[in-house]
Amino acid sequence: MGHQPNINDMLLEVKNISLSFGGVKVLSDISFDIKRNEIRAIIGPNGAGKSSMLNIINGFYHPQQGEIWFNGHKRVSEKPFKIARQGIARTFQNIALFKGMSTLDNLMTGRITKMNTNIFWQALWKGPAEREEIQHRERVEQIIDFLKIQSIRKTPVGRLPYGMQKRVELGRALAAEAKLLLLDEPMAGMNLEEKQDMCRFILDVNDEFDTTIALIEHDMGVVMDLSDRVVVLDYGRKLADGTPDEVRNNQTVIDAYLGVVHD
């Protein structure tokens, strides 16, 4: 392994990651990778360390050991906002929207990494700043159409029902046009119909925008349908890694996870 950028078909490589809080080990020696343009599921029981893994990938947590390679480069900068600018967008298990802002403004804020006129042009709101606003506004309107949220464009998102908030949060992540999209339980707490819509969106995003997706999900049906490959975590260890079929038939996984009824 040299210092040359390693351009291969892996978008993200997680190597030997260990993370602990105080004395509590949350992840131990986890390695896996995400190919360009695939949908990669991360599954495992509650407390397995799935969300912690996403928090490491987008820079909220800093592992004590291990490396992250993104887009052929070993990560050196670790600040979340810089990682966002490198092309990683995400949603949260417990929704982190700008609650006082409208759907439109949430999505426009999601595009912030793509906008670069300086503050003085913005203050004048003329010339480059105006052109940029209009151009990005168009892109955001496309996303709004795609997610079918036209009717709530101007609604402060704090007032929306839970399922809609999840959808807006996805929209904000899409607005960044990131290379890698991290979705932490995008369907949790949704009814069947909302889940089907969300599945559709995820597949379409993956197809139409060529976005690579890492997905945490508890619903096994959804995972088997959506994902190309699955990594299984259990109490901070990696249990299995492979196609949905391989994982489903893996005896350790059945014993530890799939065998037991999971809520």
Binding site: K79, F81, A84, F92, M101, M108, T109, I112
Partner: peptide
């Protein structure tokens, strides 16, 4: 109506979310 204005409101609203969308 400006990008920075939205970023200001975003930070006021939710620090964590603001970081995630790339706001310093």
């Amino acid at each position: 109506f400006t990008k920075t204005g939205r970023a200001l409101r975003a930070v006021a609203d939710d620090h964590q979310a603001a970081l995630t969308v790339g706001i310093s």
